[in-house]
């Protein structure tokens, strides 16, 4: 039998956390680390997550109506008087309650989100960063990681995709225009020096870009070139310094810019657009292009001609978005419309099921046509 | 903001793959749960049930008996109540974490795989 005691002053600093099998694995790995994190700074009071190096779990507080007492065994100095009334073996140990809890923290694996709220956009001008990082709330990558509800691996992946760059230690995001210029210059220089697009090394690529550039006014620093390689390429396995250019990503980037330039005010026939698109690449660039690569960036107001349609101009309410899309184009090829609406499929329904909730679907030959209900 | 979770206290436990198999963990902790409110005095009294250990004031409030072969448990509360319950395996193990605001440290101190649960109405002591 155990004597049960409780401390008169309860410690309120203890919590109970659900340890899923994945979390237990992380705990058991001596090289792993776990961190509690939240977006922003202490005062912002964002939602707390738990992160390993690679994964993010959202904490959910589950209150309950029972009394839970957390107790610790101790050795009593006293001779406890024998309780003979209950006919039980006399107590052999003592436990003292040191905390009570009325809730548990459940843990749900989620996608971590990089917090870029306070990160400045850099367009290549020479006045970034300001001296001493004045007016820059996020002063280092460590700061950025600490203020994001996101694991390190997920953070760095998103950072690379966004065109994040670290200049003199200060994180910034390169503007679209600056990314375009830097990409263009990088491609031209790499081709001029006959560099291999499948194995672009940072040092070589930087040297190629900076050959014959006046260093005083050169915005294409090694950090910028690294950002270009991260955004438009994939790290070669087992080689920390080498990237394979993702030709499709590059082609799509040029294609979106071309749509914006040539198909904003009015639509353009696809054949003509392909020629225009190709013309925006550096001369002799080896990139294959197809209209289908730009799905999610254009609609077809009449027949087959294309017109630029950026998602950020569409309503974020799913019903209204479908309404707008059908107003712009009464019938859609399913493959053309899906990229415009899939981000609003928050419940993760099968795409057919999702579309049928808001639209009509019918087969015409090999195609699937989507129109309004 | 971001803070590391220290697992220093768990190290030996995790390395040896030992974990709780009965009422208390290898590190000496126990989780007790009652379906109800447990009222206990919060102020010291000159009564044999009040003791001081390592400068902590304690009140003795109950007696717990576990029958390990059947996982049954009996809890005597005060002088008047008797509760019947059991040792229950948790669906998901629970980490015991201390958030020490003073030192700015977060520490996982133990892992519970079982709790002692009392969900029936208290019976009078016969």
């Amino acid at each position: 039998s155990l004597n049960l005691h409780e401390r008169l002053s309860i410690d309120r600093s203890f919590r109970l956390l659900h340890l899923t099998p994945e979390l237990l694995e992380v705990l058991k790995d001596p090289n792993s680390k776990l961190q509690f994190k939240a977006a922003g700074n202490d005062e912002d009071d964002g939602d707390v997550v738990l992160c390993s190096r690679e994964k993010t779990w959202l904490l959910r507080q589950k209150n309950h109506s029972n009394t839970t007492m957390l107790m610790h065994e101790f050795t009593s100095e006293q001779e406890t008087p024998l309780e003979t009334t209950f006919g039980l073996p006399s107590p052999m140990s003592d436990f003292a309650g040191f905390a009570r809890t009325t809730f548990e923290y459940e843990t749900k694996e989620v996608s971590g989100i990089l917090n870029v709220e306070s990160i400045p956009i850099h367009n290549g001008s020479s006045d970034f960063p300001p001296a001493d990082g004045r007016d820059l709330p996020v002063k280092s990558m460590d700061d950025l990681l600490a203020s994001s509800a996101c694991s390190e691996k997920e953070c760095l992946l998103q950072w690379g995709q966004l065109g994040g760059c670290v200049i003199k230690g200060y994180p910034c995001i390169l503007s679209s225009d600056f990314l375009t210029k830097a990409l263009h210059v990088t491609l031209m220089s790499a081709m001029a020096e006959s560099l291999n697009f499948s194995r672009l090394r940072l040092g070589e690529t930087f040297d190629a870009v900076n050959k014959d550039i006046d260093q005083e006014s050169n915005p294409y620093t090694i950090d910028v070139i690294k950002t270009i390689l991260e955004k438009y390429g994939e790290k070669v396995k087992d080689d920390d310094d080498c990237w394979q250019l993702n030709q499709k990503k590059v082609a799509v980037w040029y294609g979106i810019r071309a749509l914006k330039k040539y198909a904003s005010q009015s639509s353009i026939p696809p054949a003509e657009f392909l020629i225009k698109w190709k013309s925006t690449f550096p001369p002799y660039a080896p990139f294959d292009i197809e209209i289908e690569m730009l799905r999610g960036w254009f609609f077809r107001p009449t027949g087959s001609s294309l017109q630029y349609l950026p998602k950020n101009t569409l309503p974020s309410d799913i019903k209204e978005r479908f309404m707008m899309l059908f107003k712009l184009q009464s019938q859609w090829d399913m493959d053309d419309i899906v990229p415009f609406v899939e981000e609003l499929n928050s419940k993760g329904l099968k795409i057919d099921v999702f579309l049928m909730k808001y639209a009509r679907k019918r087969r015409v030959g090999k195609k699937v046509i989507i129109s309004s209900r | 903001p971001s803070i590391n979770v220290s697992k220093r206290q768990l190290q030996t436990l995790l390395q040896s793959d030992q974990h709780q198999t009965s009422v208390s963990t290898p590190l000496g902790n126990m989780m007790l749960e009652i379906q109800g409110d447990l009222e206990l005095p919060r102020q010291w009294s000159e009564d044999q049930r009040f003791t001081t250990i390592d400068k902590e004031q304690l009140v003795r409030w109950g007696l717990l008996h576990i029958d390990p072969s059947r996982n049954n448990a009996i809890l005597f509360v005060g002088r008047k109540q008797r509760l019947l319950g059991s040792l229950v395996k948790l669906d998901t193990p629970l980490g015991l974490i201390k958030f020490n605001q003073q030192d700015g440290i977060v520490e996982m101190q133990d892992i519970f795989y079982y709790k002692v649960l009392f969900k029936s109405r208290p019976l009078p002591i016969m």
Binding site: V48, Y105 | Q35, L38, L40, G78, Q81, F99
Partner: peptide, 28 residues
């Protein structure tokens, strides 16, 4: 016996509500 040591039983058990956790509540 002025010292009250007592379980006030609750008929049911409820734990349905879940909410996100704020940074400040970790420390309070």
């Amino acid at each position: 016996d002025e010292i009250r040591i007592w379980v006030r039983y609750k008929e049911g058990f409820s734990d349905a509500v879940r909410k996100n956790v704020s940074w400040s509540s970790l420390w309070s």
